[in-house]
């Protein structure tokens, strides 16, 4: 497939890292990963998700991934359902998530068990204890796809949706499948998000919080609505050329689910000042290449 039909526009980027929010913070963190803590500093989920009842049912991981999606959609000029529906058919706008498995060993469970048996797990009493003490939506806080569900609710997205939990490749897979979903005509817009937040009880000294999101749009749709395109995606068989930040290197390997997406965001950021005449782009993994925003116009001439 050649030409414009094979190009997908990136119209929004959202990123949260232990070094702060935004591409500049990501750039700084990749350059100097040494002096940051584990969490995203001063993260206030309520600034992104305004319904307190919804917030209470979201693990921090889902809050971070949803926040990244909100940032990306705001940049794309579609920060609300009303703005999205003015630009896109919600039945052709979907969401793809990359995440890791969700630990059931939550703080409320530990507290419940400690109260029930002085630290002993008493299975014979578990049913009656759990049913009275645990959050009724507990099961929903443990589902890997829940961040995608929340993102769909935040914006009214009804199109294709899937959640990849393939380890360090999950984010690149989610973006690649979203790319093909658009190129093959099954959607006009896909919001791709990924997040890491070390789970209670299984966090390690090296694990870090991070989340990223990209808004992908059919090139012709983005052009028609006058969107500010920040980068381009296209499929490529080429394996050479410039490579995005490697997900198996520090500090991205500390964020196994979102590392692949953060590397793409880094590439978009890096190319934002690139020479549009250069077409080699950045190899982003999963058979995709990221190009400068202006490349499509140059190629069309």
């Amino acid at each position: 497939m050649e030409g414009e039909a094979s190009i997908v526009a990136i119209t929004g980027v959202g990123v949260l890292t232990p070094a702060g929010v935004g591409p500049a913070a990501l750039r700084n963190w990749l350059r100097d990963p040494g002096e940051v803590g584990r969490p995203v500093p001063d993260f206030d989920a309520a600034a992104y998700i305004h319904n307190p009842k919804v917030l209470r049912s979201m693990q921090r991981l889902f809050q971070l991934a949803s926040a990244a999606a909100v940032l990306a959609m705001r940049q794309a000029g579609m920060g609300s359902t009303a703005e999205l529906t003015s630009h896109a058919d919600v039945t052709r706008a979907g969401t793809a998530l990359a995440t890791t498995d969700i630990s059931p060993i939550t703080a409320d469970l530990v507290q419940t068990l400690e109260e029930a048996g002085g630290g002993e797990l008493q299975l014979s009493r578990f049913g009656e204890v759990a049913l009275h003490k645990l959050h009724p939506f507990r099961r929903l806080t443990l589902l890997a796809n829940m961040a995608a569900a929340h993102v769909s609710l935040l914006f009214g997205l009804q199109g294709p949706s899937f959640t990849m939990t393939s380890g360090v490749e999950a984010a690149q897979q989610a973006v690649a499948e979203s790319y093909w979903t658009i190129v093959e005509g099954r959607a006009d817009l896909m919001v791709c998000e990924a997040g890491d937040s070390p789970a209670y009880g299984v966090e390690t000294e090296t694990s870090r919080e991070a989340a990223g999101a990209l808004v992908l749009e059919r090139w012709s749709s983005a052009k028609a609505r006058g969107a500010a395109v920040v980068g381009l995606l296209r499929a490529t068989a080429a394996s050479g050329g410039v490579v995005a930040a490697r997900i198996d290197e520090e500090p991205l390997r500390r964020c196994p689910a979102s590392g692949g997406l953060l590397s793409m965001i880094e590439a978009v950021d890096r190319l934002s000042g690139a020479d549009p005449q250069r077409s080699e782009g950045v190899a982003a993994g999963a058979g995709l290449q990221i190009l400068p925003a202006s490349y499509a116009e140059v190629a069309a001439r």
Binding site: V90, A148, G156, L157, Q158, P160, S161, R186
Partner: peptide, 30 residues
């Protein structure tokens, strides 16, 4: 094959069947 997401409620199915309908339509079209 077709897939979709409801954008309805986290726990509930949409009474109008909208999300499931989109998946079925997409699979038939495919």
């Amino acid at each position: 094959f077709g897939c979709s997401i409801n954008a309805y409620r986290i726990t509930d199915s949409p009474p109008d069947g909208q999300g499931p309908l989109l998946a079925m339509n997409a699979a038939l079209e495919d």
